[in-house]
Design a protein around this nucleic acid. Structure first.
Lengths: 142, 142
DNA sequence: ATTTGTGCAAATCGTTTGCATCTGA
DNA sequence: TCAGATGCAAACGATTTGCACAAAT
C-alpha cells in the first residue's frame, strides 16, 4: 500500500473516532469514496451500487446505517428534494441546490451566490434551524 | 339541505367538471373539506383521518388518488419537506413554508414577504420550474 | 473478553395498483 | 348503458430492524 493512501486512511480513521465511530473496513472504504474526491451527491442505492462496482463489499443495510451515522457526525448532509428518496451531499457547507426533476440529479449552488431575504420571525418558541432553497429545473421543452 | 350549502356543492361540482373530474360523492366531500375554510396543509393519512372523523366514507386509496388528481388539476400543491411523507397545501399561490421539524407541521410564509436573489442561470437546456424555500424551525432549547 | 458493527432476510411504512363492484351521466 | 370511480387487499419500493456471526478495542 502506498504511503499516501495509508496516511489518508489513518487520517480518516481519526475523523471516524472523533465522531465516536469505530473505523471498520466498510466505514473506512465508504468514507474514502466520499471524502477523497470532490463533492458528490448520492442516494443510498447509488452509493451502494458504486461501492460494489468499485469492489467494496458492503451490504445495503450497512450503507444506510453509515449514511445516517455520517450525517449525524456532520460528515454529510441530507437533502430533501424528492418525497420518495433521500439524497446525501458531501458538501456540508452553506449552499443550496438545483434539482433536475427529469433526472433526479442535484447541482450545488454556492452559498455566497444566493440570498434569501424577508423571512418572517419564526413563531414564538421556535428557532430557525436552516433555510433550504431548491431551484427545480427541467429540460427546456422545444 | 340549506340553500347555501347546496349552491356551494354545485359550485364545487363545476370546478371538478372543469378539471375533467366527475363530481362523485367522495370527491365532492373531500373538495368541500379542502376548499371551504381557510388554507390547510395535510398528508394523505391526515386527510383520510379527518374525513372519516367527519363521517365521510372514503378509502385511503381514494384519498391518495383524489389528492393527486386535485394536484394535477391545480386545486392543490404538493410540498416536499420530509423525505418520508408527502404534504399537500390548499394554497396554490406564490408562497413558501416554515416546517416545524419536531411536529411535522407547515406554516405558510406569504410570497410577498420572502425573496430569493442571486440564483445562478440554470444549466444549458434547463428552465426554472419553481423555487422552493423551506425554513426549518425547531422548538427552542432552553 | 467485551463491545460494537455487519449482513442477511424479514418486517415496516407510505404509497400504488389490480380487479371486482358500484355509480353518475 | 357503461366509461369512469371506488374499495379492498395485494403489491411495491425505500428504508429499518432482529438476530447470529464477525471484527475492533
Amino acid at each position: 500500500m502506498p504511503k499516501k493512501v495509508r496516511e489518508q486512511g489513518i487520517e480518516t480513521a481519526k475523523r471516524l473516532r472523533a465522531a465516536g465511530l469505530r473505523p471498520t473496513r466498510q466505514r473506512l472504504e465508504l468514507a474514502g469514496m466520499l471524502l477523497s474526491a470532490g463533492h458528490r451527491h448520492m442516494t443510498a442505492e447509488s452509493l451502494h451500487a458504486d461501492a460494489v462496482a468499485g469492489g467494496i463489499k458492503v451490504s445495503l443495510a450497512t450503507v444506510y446505517n453509515t449514511l445516517h451515522q455520517f450525517t449525524e457526525a456532520g460528515l454529510l448532509r441530507q437533502v430533501v428534494v424528492d418525497a420518495s428518496r433521500s439524497y446525501f451531499d458531501t458538501n456540508t457547507g452553506d449552499h443550496q441546490h438545483f434539482f433536475v426533476e427529469d433526472e433526479g440529479t442535484l447541482i450545488d449552488i454556492p452559498g455566497e451566490a444566493i440570498a434569501v431575504s424577508g423571512v418572517p420571525a419564526p413563531p414564538k418558541g421556535m428557532d430557525v434551524d436552516r433555510i433550504d432553497v431548491v431551484v427545480r429545473v427541467r429540460k427546456t421543452v422545444t
